[in-house]
C-alpha cells in the first residue's frame, strides 16, 4: 500500500492524531500498547493506579465474572482512581498496531467512590489489514465522575470490533465521546451502560465514514435506578461509507429521564446512513424522547454563507464543523486538532 505523507511511518505522528501527545506534565498517567506488548505504563498521580490487567486479575477475582473468558496473556490495563481522588489531568492511553496483524485488548477502569477522573484513549495502526478487538469495562462507583474520549484513526482496510460495558453507580456520572476520524473497512462499536439511582450517562459520538467503509455503532443505556438520566448524541457523516447507528434507551427506574439525538449528513451519493433510535419505557414514571435528522448539507445554509462571499468548499466545511461542534462540547481542548483534521479533510473533498 502506498502511503500518503500524512499517513507516513512516523509512530509519534500517528499517536499524536489520537490524542497521545501531551507532554507528560499534561497527563496524570500514560499507557501505551504497541502490537502485543505494553510499551509505556506510568502513573504521575499517587491517587491513580495503573497496572497490566494480567497482573491485577490475580488480585481482583471479582473481575472474572464480568470479563468472561480471557486469553492467558491478557493484554490491557487495569486502572483505578482511588476513593475521593480528584484527578484533573487526563490519563492518556493508546493502542497501536505496528506490525502484528491482530490485537486483542481488555481494559478495566475503576473510579472509586467520590473520585473524578478523565481518560483519553486512542486506537490506530500503521499496517495493512489489521484486526483490532477492544473489550472495556468501566466501573463508576457511587458519586464518582468519569469522562472518556476515544479516538479511532484507522487504515482503510483494517477491521475493528469494540465493546464497552459501563456500570454507573449511585449519583455517579459517566461521559463518553467516541470519535472516528478515519473509519476502517469495517468497524463495530458496541456500548452498554447500566445506570443506578441518580446516576447520569452521556454518550456522544462523531463518526466520519469514508468510501468502502462499513460502520456500525450501537449505544444502549439502561436507566435502572430511580432518577437515573441519560443523553445520547450521535453525529454521523458519510463521505461514501455506510453508517448504521443503533441507539437504545430503556427507562426502567422511577423518575428516569433520557433523550437521544441522532443526526447525519451525507456528503455524496455513494454512502448511506441508517439511524435506528429506540426508546423503551418500562416504568410509567419515565420520560424518554428522541429526535433524528439525516440529509444532505442544507442548500439554504450553504447559499446563505456563500452570499457573504465565502466559497462553496469553505461554506461546506463551516456547516459540517458546526454540525459536529453543536452540543458535543466536552471534547478536551487538546483533541480539537483531531476534529480540525476531520473537518479539513471534508473541506478538501467538498
Amino acid at each position: 500500500m502506498v502511503k500518503s505523507p500524512a499517513e507516513g511511518n512516523d509512530m509519534d505522528g500517528k499517536l499524536n492524531l489520537v490524542g497521545y501527545d501531551s507532554p507528560k506534565t499534561q497527563s496524570s498517567g500514560s499507557f501505551l500498547v504497541v502490537d502485543d506488548g505494553i510499551a509505556e505504563m506510568q502513573s504521575y498521580s499517587d491517587k491513580l493506579e495503573i497496572l497490566p490487567l494480567a497482573k491485577s486479575l490475580e488480585k481482583e477475582q471479582w473481575l472474572k465474572e464480568h470479563l468472561g473468558p480471557v486469553p492467558k496473556k491478557v493484554l490491557g490495563f487495569f486502572v483505578r482512581a482511588l476513593p475521593d481522588a480528584k484527578i484533573e489531568k487526563p490519563l492518556q492511553a493508546c493502542f497501536f498496531m505496528k506490525e502484528k496483524k491482530a490485537q486483542v485488548i481488555h481494559n478495566v477502569f475503576v473510579a472509586e467512590k467520590n473520585s473524578q477522573v478523565h481518560l483519553i484513549s486512542g486506537c490506530t495502526d500503521d499496517l495493512v489489514e489489521g484486526k483490532h478487538t477492544g473489550i472495556s469495562l468501566f466501573f463508576v462507583r457511587e458519586n464518582a465522575s468519569v469522562s472518556v474520549t476515544r479516538i479511532h484513526h484507522w487504515s482503510p482496510d483494517a477491521s475493528v470490533f469494540s465493546k464497552s460495558s459501563v456500570f454507573v453507580g449511585k449519583n455517579a456520572v459517566f461521559d463518553s465521546n467516541y470519535i472516528v476520524i478515519n473509519s476502517p473497512k469495517k468497524e463495530q462499536a458496541h456500548s452498554i451502560a447500566r445506570v443506578d439511582d441518580g446516576g447520569a450517562v452521556g454518550f456522544n459520538s462523531i463518526i466520519f465514514s469514508r468510501e468502502n467503509s462499513d460502520f456500525t455503532i450501537s449505544d444502549k443505556i439502561l436507566l435502572e435506578g430511580k432518577n437515573a438520566r441519560a443523553e445520547i448524541i450521535s453525529r454521523a457523516i458519510s463521505d461514501g461509507g455506510r453508517i448504521l447507528t443503533k441507539t437504545y434507551m430503556a427507562g426502567k427506574g422511577k423518575d428516569t429521564r433520557g433523550h437521544l439525538e441522532c443526526d447525519g449528513i451525507l456528503l455524496n451519493e455513494k454512502g448511506s446512513i441508517h439511524a435506528i433510535p429506540e426508546l423503551e419505557a418500562v416504568n410509567p414514571k419515565t420520560n424518554l424522547s428522541h429526535e433524528a435528522g439525516i440529509g444532505r448539507i442544507s442548500e439554504t445554509e450553504l447559499s446563505y454563507l456563500m452570499a457573504r462571499g465565502i466559497d462553496e468548499a469553505k461554506a461546506k466545511s463551516l456547516i459540517v464543523k458546526g454540525f459536529l461542534d453543536a452540543k458535543i462540547n466536552r471534547i478536551p481542548p487538546n483533541l480539537q486538532k483531531a476534529i480540525d483534521e476531520l473537518v479539513g479533510k471534508i473541506s478538501i473533498q467538498a
Binding site: S298, T300, Y304, G309, I310, G322, D325, A326
Partner: peptide, 20 residues
C-alpha cells in the same frame, strides 16, 4: 439581507463575522 435567514447550529456569529 435575507427575509428568512437560516439559524445554523455550531456556527458562532462572531466567527462568521470575522470571516466576512
Amino acid at each position: 439581507g435575507f427575509q428568512h435567514p437560516p439559524a445554523i447550529d455550531g456556527i458562532m456569529l462572531r466567527k462568521l463575522l470575522e470571516i466576512i
